[in-house]
C-alpha cells in the first residue's frame, strides 16, 4: 500500500487558507494575553506603574499590533457567525431552532450594537481625558 497523502490543496486551497488563518490567529492571542497580565500587574503596583503602562501603549508598534488584533478578532467573529447556526441543536425542549438567517442576523445585530456602544463609550472616555 502507498501511504496516505495529505489533502491535495492543503494548505493553499482557498477554504483551507481561511481555516489556517483562523487557526494561526491564536498566535496573536499569546502576546495579547501577556499584555493583559502586564496590565493587571501594573494596576496592582500603583498609579506610577499604571501610567507607565498606559504610556507604553502609545508606541506605534503597539498600536499597529492592536489594530491587527482588532481586524483579526473581527474576522474570527464573522467566520464564527457564519458557522454558528449549525452548531446548535435542532431543538431545545419544545422549540425548534430558529432559521439560520435569524440566528446569523441576531449575531450581527448584537455585534453591531456592542461595537457601537463600545465606540461611543471609548469616544466619551477619550473625550473626557482630553
Amino acid at each position: 500500500m502507498a501511504p496516505p497523502r495529505p489533502p491535495d490543496r492543503f494548505p493553499a486551497g482557498p477554504r483551507y487558507r481561511s481555516y489556517l488563518l483562523f487557526g494561526m490567529g491564536s498566535a496573536l492571542m499569546l502576546p495579547l494575553g501577556f499584555e493583559l497580565l502586564c496590565a493587571l500587574w501594573a494596576l496592582a503596583s500603583g498609579d506610577a506603574a499604571w501610567r507607565e503602562f498606559q504610556a507604553g501603549l502609545r508606541h506605534p508598534l503597539r498600536i499597529a499590533g492592536h489594530a491587527v488584533a482588532g481586524v483579526w478578532l473581527t474576522w474570527v467573529a464573522l467566520r464564527f457567525f457564519r458557522l454558528f447556526p449549525k452548531t446548535q441543536p435542532f431543538r431545545l425542549g419544545p422549540f425548534r431552532r430558529p432559521p439560520d438567517w435569524l440566528l446569523v442576523g441576531g449575531l450581527y445585530g448584537v455585534f453591531a450594537a456592542a461595537s457601537l456602544a463600545l465606540g461611543l463609550w471609548l469616544a466619551g472616555r477619550i473625550g473626557g481625558l482630553g
Binding site: 477554504r15 483551507y16 481555516y19 458557522l83 452548531t87 446548535q88 441543536p89
Partner: peptide, 24 residues
C-alpha cells in the same frame, strides 16, 4: 471546525454541524 467535511459532503449531511452539536 475547519468545516471542510460539510463543504465536500455530496449529501448535505453536514458532519461538521453534527460534531459541534455533539460537543455542546
Amino acid at each position: 471546525y475547519a468545516n471542510e467535511c460539510a463543504e465536500v459532503c455530496p449529501k448535505n449531511v453536514d458532519p461538521a454541524g453534527a460534531i459541534q452539536q455533539a460537543k455542546l
